[in-house]
Design a binder for these strands. Structure first.
Lengths: 344, 344
DNA sequence: ATGAAAGCGCTAACAT
DNA sequence: ATGTTAGCGCTTTCAT
């Protein structure tokens, strides 16, 4: 069987409490005693039983991270950041994915998928504010991403409207006059709404068209969805001179279709993506993209969750804005772009 | 505070045991009683405390998955499969990453990163057999991936030597005569050894060169490493007519360099990757790749771990071979390849 | 500075 | 079919 505190206490000829004191680095232990107990611990190979500790303290040392899908490299990279940030606080990460489906997101938010956690970081897509309003679960919840909720939860995100405007502004500055948007999502909810809004605002401000014929809705947010959306726009006979995509995989899927149809990027059509995934730096044409500060987002999310475990006074729910910047590459600048070997 | 069994029992006017019986779907409970207790459960919003259950039963319902890096889409996609496979057995997944560094892999295998788990699935890169030989930890361990260990643990993998041979065979069949290998890893350990061996065997069998000048070692396995390796080979003045890369990101990085240098794929140099990540289907030139059956690998890994929790007789350690196949695309076949819109 | 004992919430053995 | 109780291993008062 496993070695328990009791076994160590018997072996060292002291009480359970003393062993516990040593294990937990309690202050008032004489060096001699500490030494003696440590020897028994080593001799028996004692390892604390976390389940017992958790039961006693009401903490598990686990936070859950629920993302739409790992297949999207943005989320995979974000997960890596969260794992490291959590580890810095001696926390480990339970990972779940929702497929961006409302039903799964509700289940996760209510704690039905994982009930052993101290806190939850959730990046929702279809989830509605009402789904969270009557949340019975009392583990702290931190929201991530571009949905805009008016709810008493911490929310970490970049300013998606401003970021989208910056992307479109870049295209306009390059002389583009007809900018399509790829990736408005089909269905009731509208996860891409902030980016669509930014796109529309910037075009309108410049006196350029932002009609529905320039917006392609999709079912998902993968390469194939971007390719299909691009193909659909071209089928209508419309020939925009630029495309702003909801994310990088969609932008890359769109570039594939343009390439097949003999259209040149950026000469015929310039493209901007969103998320700055590694893949975008290594295509035949590297991808200009909005680059959110993933590092900060993941770190802030972890810190926000853990801050609410303090017990006492919960701070006011905060909206935290993470940084972002636009990385200019060949899909808008052509071969004049820097970083030709993907090393930017 | 949280609602406990005791609270529910008091509310329903029954004993703790009866509530427990209802919660655990115990057989011998009258429908009337079940109904009554369930009402109290709902009324109070009772949720079982897993820490307590864990302490009592010695099970957590959590398995850990430790991967080299999430940034590699192969591993991200595999993680998704494992999460789903675990969910099918009411298990949830704790995710960790090792960076492929031996030190981290040892820590994980010894359970120092997460001690609340029922089982562990580990995909090692630098880990040596000796590191596992004196493993004190007693939670079941299942190994994943291409290293070849002679150890009493279940190991799920595809036949990497045969898969590499099939990839090189394909290149030879297309008339290529000088096939480079990109991605042999620097350092003591040799995680790519099986793929290098397959490459060497197939070339030798065909009477073609397989000298060291055709092998490019790298420090990592990302796009940038593949690009750097390709650039280094070209700098030597050597002009292979084909490249077999350790994985898809490296292959894509290599293609970027060839493109920059004005070399055409596949006309001048054909390329085969490994892992069949989504990204490979959407480049300007789609990537021929060895496609392991990720679905099977993830599912088998979960089933293997859980099979060892049965308690009683542990089955003999097994080597399980998952399926794979070679997907032929433009990077070897040119524009004649099928699936021009990435939909294969 | 160290010891004794209660109890976290649950399950399982035993009793009724 | 339901109730009683011990105890999983630990932390935490409260004593000494």
């Amino acid at each position: 069987m496993r070695v328990s505190l009791k076994d160590v206490a018997a072996h060292a000829g002291v009480s359970i409490k003393t062993v516990s004191n040593v294990v937990n680095n309690y202050q008032h232990v004489t060096p001699a005693m500490r030494e003696r107990v440590q020897q028994s611990i080593d001799a028996l190979g004692y390892r604390p039983n976390l389940a017992a500790r958790h039961l006693r303290k009401g903490r598990t040392g686990i936070i859950a991270l629920a993302l739409p899908e790992l297949g999207n490299p943005y989320f995979a990279e974000l997960a890596a950041v969260v794992i490291d940030a959590a580890a810095a606080h001696d926390y480990i990460v339970l990972l779940d994915h929702t497929g961006g489906r409302r039903e799964q997101e509700v289940l996760v938010s209510q704690g039905f998928r994982a009930r052993v956690i101290d806190g939850l970081i959730l990046s929702p897509i279809e989830l509605e504010a009402d789904d969270l309003r009557d949340r019975a679960e009392n583990v702290p919840l931190v929201l991530l991403g571009e949905r805009d909720y008016d709810l008493p939860y911490d929310h970490i995100a970049i300013d998606n409207v401003a970021a989208a405007r910056a992307a479109v502004r870049h295209l306009i500055d390059l002389g583009r006059r007809e900018v399509a948007f790829i990736g408005a999502r089909r269905g009731h909810s509208e996860p891409a709404q902030l980016r669509v809004r930014g796109w529309r605002e910037e075009l309108s401000a410049a006196g350029l068209p932002a009609d529905d014929g320039l917006v392609a809705a999709t079912d998902g947010w993968g390469h194939a969805d971007g390719a299909a959306a691009m193909a659909r726009i071209l089928e209508t006979g419309r020939r925009p001179d630029a495309v702003f995509a909801y994310n990088d995989p969609m932008a890359i899927g769109a570039m594939r279709v343009l390439h097949r149809q003999g259209l040149r990027v950026p000469e015929d059509i310039a493209i901007v993506g969103f998320d700055d995934v590694v893949e975008g730096r290594f295509g035949a044409v590297t991808l200009t993209s909005v680059s959110p500060d993933k590092e900060a987002i993941g770190r802030l999310a972890v810190e926000s969750v853990l801050a609410r475990l303090g017990g006492g006074e919960s701070p006011e729910p905060r909206r935290v804005w993470a940084d972002y910047h636009l990385v200019r590459r060949e899909s808008t600048l052509g071969r004049a772009a820097p970083g030709g070997d993907g090393q930017d």
